[in-house]
């Protein structure tokens, strides 16, 4: 019985056709599914290797966002006195910092991932998209750890989540979609043009300032309020905030974010697949 099952599972790829790539290159999710265990192992390796030989281990995944929370709260809450829509600044901040951290970490990791896996790419076949996906996956693990801090903050400030908290799950999926699209695009660009190694850190920094992480998009004056919507992270971060703090969701902003995320995903994966064909020859 076992043998039968095995045959069927390997039957998916038992006949492989190798042809020059042409046309629109979408993602072969069936193949990615077939390689899901590799995705799991590469994610697991990324997480494991990141904290191996550090004294505090996985505690870093907890400490980093916590320290950032404290520092940012001091600067933007106490000193700059940012408008936090009437909520305690630390909770307001962290509801935005949490998705942003995940997003920027995923971008930073995945943009380096393909170049960093050159020796794998030159020696063995697997869908290359697994590499940036694993980077996003590893960031997702850190995200889950960092989520614990949010729970603590909400308890501390006595914020009781409403039904809106259920929105967090689709929001996480939307953040992952945006991160996958941007991450694959950057990883492919970085493989094709090494300049991106220098571009990415800048880009992430600037992107944070144009995302409502430390401030509220709802309190912005008009030209900026509408302009910032063109950044998918604006709708996403604002969405997290309304879900966690129980304010009414801004569906328009979320809709635009979803649209942008899908577009970035399509462009990112298509470009990745185009570069993928030549990857072994250029990395």
């Amino acid at each position: 019985m076992n043998g039968e099952k095995k045959d069927r599972s390997s039957g998916d790829v038992s006949v492989q056709i190798i042809e020059p790539p042409r046309g629109w290159l979408g993602v072969n999710w069936r193949e990615i599914w077939h390689y899901r265990e590799l995705l799991y192992f590469l994610t697991w390796r990324d997480v494991k290797v990141r904290y191996k030989q550090t004294f505090l281990g996985i505690l870093w995944a907890f400490l980093q966002p916590f320290i950032r929370l404290v520092v940012f709260s001091m600067i933007f809450g106490r000193l700059a006195r940012m408008d936090s829509e009437g909520f305690p600044y630390p909770v307001f901040l962290y509801a935005g910092l949490l998705p942003w951290q995940f997003f920027s970490d995923a971008l930073g990791r995945s943009s380096q991932s393909v170049v960093g896996s050159a020796n794998l790419i030159k020696k063995v076949y697997f869908p290359r998209l697994i590499i940036p996906l694993a980077s996003v996956g590893a960031s997702l693990v850190d995200f889950a750890v960092a989520f614990a801090i949010l729970v603590g903050l909400m308890l501390y400030y006595g914020i009781v989540p409403g039904a809106g908290i259920l929105m967090v799950l689709p929001l996480v999926l939307l953040t992952v979609l945006t991160a996958v699209g941007t991450g694959t695009l950057l990883s492919a660009l970085n493989a094709a043009y090494r300049d991106f190694r220098f571009v990415v850190p800048f880009m992430i920094q600037i992107w944070m300032y144009i995302s409502p992480v430390v401030y509220s998009v709802r309190k912005l004056p008009e030209p900026w309020k509408s302009l910032l919507v063109l950044n998918p992270m604006t709708g996403i971060i604002d969405g997290y905030r309304s879900a966690i703090l129980g304010t009414p969701p801004a569906w328009g902003r979320l809709g635009v974010a979803l649209l942008l995320a899908v577009m970035i995903y399509l462009v990112g994966t298509h470009y990745f697949r185009r570069v993928e064909a030549a990857l072994a020859d250029i990395v």
Binding site: S10, V13, S14, V15, Q16, I17, I18, E19, P20, P21, N119, L120, I121, K122, K123, V124, Y125, A277, A278, A280, D281
Partner: peptide, 25 residues
Amino acid sequence: RITYPTEGRVRLRGRVGSLLEVGTG
């Protein structure tokens, strides 16, 4: 399948392995 052909096509039946991948990863 490490690199693609510029022209033509290949059909493979079965799992492909190679002893040149020793220690990869």
